[in-house]
Design a protein around this nucleic acid. Structure first.
Lengths: 241, 241
DNA sequence: ACCTGAACACCGTTCAAGT
DNA sequence: ACCTGAACACCGTTCAAGT
């Protein structure tokens, strides 16, 4: 029944793990998380499922590899920019991830799932390393590097996870204005007794700029690290317990 | 073939959405994310799939409801504690979530997926409201409430998402020492040219305390918010761009 | 060593039929 | 209004067989 839109090119190159991962990324980009199935993959690669299983262990590993490929490209800073000061580079790396998720919305869910499933998998470690190098350059003492970097990475992963969906719902790109309207409307219908705060800030959700807000959060964490762990920041005290 | 271990009690109460959600939470607690299937659910509830679909729209909605039930209980502070100062209450709410994920490890993945799939769903909004009320009590000016609260919530969601898996891998509880050993070993085998930072902090991962580190991140964000948005904090300056 | 493709076990979901 | 349960479409994965 299906019109059998045969891929024009028969297989020219041999199958390889890399070719499979590339195809997986393309399918995810085209149709979202639901778009990656072994059947779609076999059709696109003009092969059978057994051939794919020769190169990758299972679907989970394939998703990991797809996410890793995209993240690796994202955290590699464009050499266009000069080295720059550490705080600026941290913002640049974070924005690289932010933009990668804008281009590959499935990456948000995938990052989140990998974070919770295998917390120190290749993707998480890659981001940790990239941020950590710059935190060290900031002058944070050795003993506090792990804590400071973890805090930054956790904030970044939490924030990009949510912001991804600000431009899409269930894999469909939606107008940002419409999306925020829907959120505002939903919030206005919340019980005023249970949700006084949310209702009070309903206007701010419409006006806010995703990138600005994302960077503001980075600055909170950086300021906290500076104040609590850098000699120059000792003037600042944390809020009393 | 299956030994048909009949649930001793035939159905006594009528089916209801709440009873279904409770059963879902129990299945998730017992067998992890893979443990919740409509077949397991029908068996436990002694009914057919159609009966369940009468009360919930689909599996996604059921997972949402299960997560919401657990989170609602977690962010409701025990009234044992006196109201207390805002920063302390923020830490208490955050730790409530932290502990809930310890008890229900599947919640980490579920929170992450909901965050990326429907960023302002009921669970996210519940956490946002709970934290937001306390950020306001902190004295943050109205115009900055949304940004400050979002940053805190993003950090919390990123951090609890990862810390969940520190005690479990693929749904199995594992010894924390063994787990950290495995991470350390894996890190020591990373390429020293590509991962100088990660290799340098490998010892800190073994010594660190999850809760302490989680709270340290909260303090970074709180200190940043205080420094950048509270009149009393103006002495602190953010790191230069 | 690498690939084929039929087959298997399992899943979420539907729906005509009952009460 | 609420429940039953067979059936459907689809999925990840396996494996004996080919080259």
């Amino acid at each position: 029944m299906a019109t059998r839109t045969r891929r024009s090119q028969r297989r020219t190159e041999a199958l390889s793990r890399q070719r499979i991962v590339e195809a997986a990324v393309q399918l995810l980009d085209a149709a979202g998380e639901g778009g990656l199935t072994f059947r779609a993959l076999t059709e696109r690669l003009a092969t059978g499922p057994g051939a794919i299983y020769w190169h990758v262990a299972n679907k989970s590993e394939l998703l990991d590899a797809a996410a890793d490929a995209v993240v690796a490209a994202a955290v590699a800073l464009k050499p266009a920019e000069p080295p720059g000061a550490p705080p600026g580079e941290i913002r640049a790396v974070a924005l690289g991830l932010f933009d990668a998720i804008d281009e590959h919305p499935w990456l948000a869910t995938q990052l989140a799932m990998q974070l919770s499933r295998s917390p120190w998998g290749s993707v998480t470690t890659r981001i940790f390393e990239s941020i950590g190098q710059r935190v060290r350059a900031l002058g944070v003492p050795d003993g506090n590097l792990f804590t400071a970097t973890s805090a930054l990475v956790h904030y970044i992963l939490g924030a990009v996870g949510q912001n991804a969906a600000n431009t899409r719902v269930d894999g469909l790109h939606v107008d940002r204005g419409e999306f925020l309207d829907a959120v505002s409307t939903a919030w206005e219908e919340l019980d005023p007794d249970d949700y006084p705060f949310t209702r009070a800030v309903v206007d701010q959700v419409r006006e806010h700029d995703d990138r600005e807000q994302f960077l503001a959060g980075i600055d909170f964490v950086l300021t906290g690290i500076t104040a609590l762990h850098l000699p120059s920041g000792q003037a600042c005290t944390p809020p009393a317990a």
